[in-house]
Design a protein around this nucleic acid. Structure first.
Lengths: 212, 212
DNA sequence: TAGATTGTTAATCGATTAACAATC
DNA sequence: TAGATTGTTAATCGATTAACAATC
């Protein structure tokens, strides 16, 4: 383990993790790559190779010890030590993310939200919503490295710049627009339009087939 | 154009589209692949190849006519004829998606939501929330082909099965779990954990570098 | 021992990038 | 004409899959 890991493998790991966690304790404490592959509809070689990246060994004929495989992935993905994050833009989507408890499991902890009009927002998530001018001091005080952007597209770049100014190194944005950032900052664009494109194309293709 | 298009290209098209739409009319009516590449921080050969898939030709030395390029992408991605969809699970995330107006632009129209306890939900999106037992009849009556799942993980497969029963062919799920579907149905898992994994790894790597 | 499973090494596939000729 | 840009053909790169030897 600890070889260089590719982005593609990285993106598949949470899937294995969720599946392994979901298994009942009642069954065998061992699980084979073959079984995981079958359950998730993937190639078994791929699963075995992916698991080999994070674990230091399954045992021929039996497979991996489920518990320790879960721990290995946890550690690898950093689920064991929490990342604190802040969110900018407490609109509908922002509030939905703020209130979502599931991020805990993935080691993400959203400490607070920021908004240009904090006073008009409902705080039904129980998390504080501060005005924008407190962003920098808050981030520096809490050594925040991750920021989530859920503002309207036209403000996204501006917010992004402020985050970088505040020392943030990883940005997760839901605004469907390209963000310009320096090299040391990573942006992941959760672009719903991209996903939609793939699905729509599937429907179109199916329709076309039917017509012929 | 009309060659077989790869998923990777497909996922990049919405990005070009958003960028082109965002350009001011004041400037030249032409835009070159080179310029798009520079603006979005991509390789210019890649952009040129992608655009060649959807458009029937830019002109050497000048580039593409912006307006018609936009139309080409629109048509290619099916933004011009709307896809009707329904959503199951009117929780926080579900309501956020219901109320998001931006999907219009991408040809997606969410007609209604379904929930096990429709009466307890706020309808601040203006869209109706029906009980689950009306799902099938509604989908068949409106010939719905796309379904969005925003229910807690443990119900996702069950909801998925009901959607398929109701004739749905493309499923967009936000529940972080694998869904079993027949071949003709496409699932796109908008798995936030996957995105998080990539970002967390970036922060981890940066930290490690700093320590050495 | 036989068979299931692992991990590794080699082959294939697909996507990206580079090189270049064509064009306005 | 010269230069910017296009589209195409070839080379490279990376990821997936296949083949196989090792192991319990």
């Amino acid at each position: 383990m600890d070889k260089k890991i590719s982005k593609s493998v990285l993106k598949r790991l949470p899937g294995y993790y969720a599946y392994l966690k979901g298994l009942q304790d009642s069954e065998s404490p061992y699980i084979s790559a073959t079984a995981v592959a079958a359950a998730l509809g993937m190639g078994e070689v791929q699963v075995r190779k992916d698991l080999a990246m994070v674990s230091d060994g399954g045992r021929p004929k039996i497979g991996y010890l489920r518990e320790s495989l879960i721990e290995d992935i946890e550690q690898f993905l950093g689920y064991d030590n929490t990342t604190d994050a802040i969110l900018v833009g407490a609109g509908r989507l922002g509030q939905a993310l703020l209130g979502y408890n599931g991020f805990d499991e993935y080691g993400l902890n959203i400490l607070a939200a920021f908004d240009i009009r904090p006073e008009t927002k409902r705080k039904d998530s129980g998390k504080p919503i501060y005005p924008m001018d407190q962003l920098e001091s808050f981030c520096k005080a809490h050594k925040i490295l991750m920021g989530i952007i859920t503002v309207p597209t036209e403000y996204a770049q501006e917010v992004c710049d402020q985050m970088i100014q505040a020392g943030i190194k990883a940005i997760w944005t839901f605004s469907p627009t390209h963000l310009d950032v320096p090299d040391h900052v990573m942006v992941h664009n959760e672009n719903m339009a991209n996903s939609l494109a793939v699905l729509s194309m599937h429907l179109q293709a199916q329709n076309r087939d039917k017509m012929q």
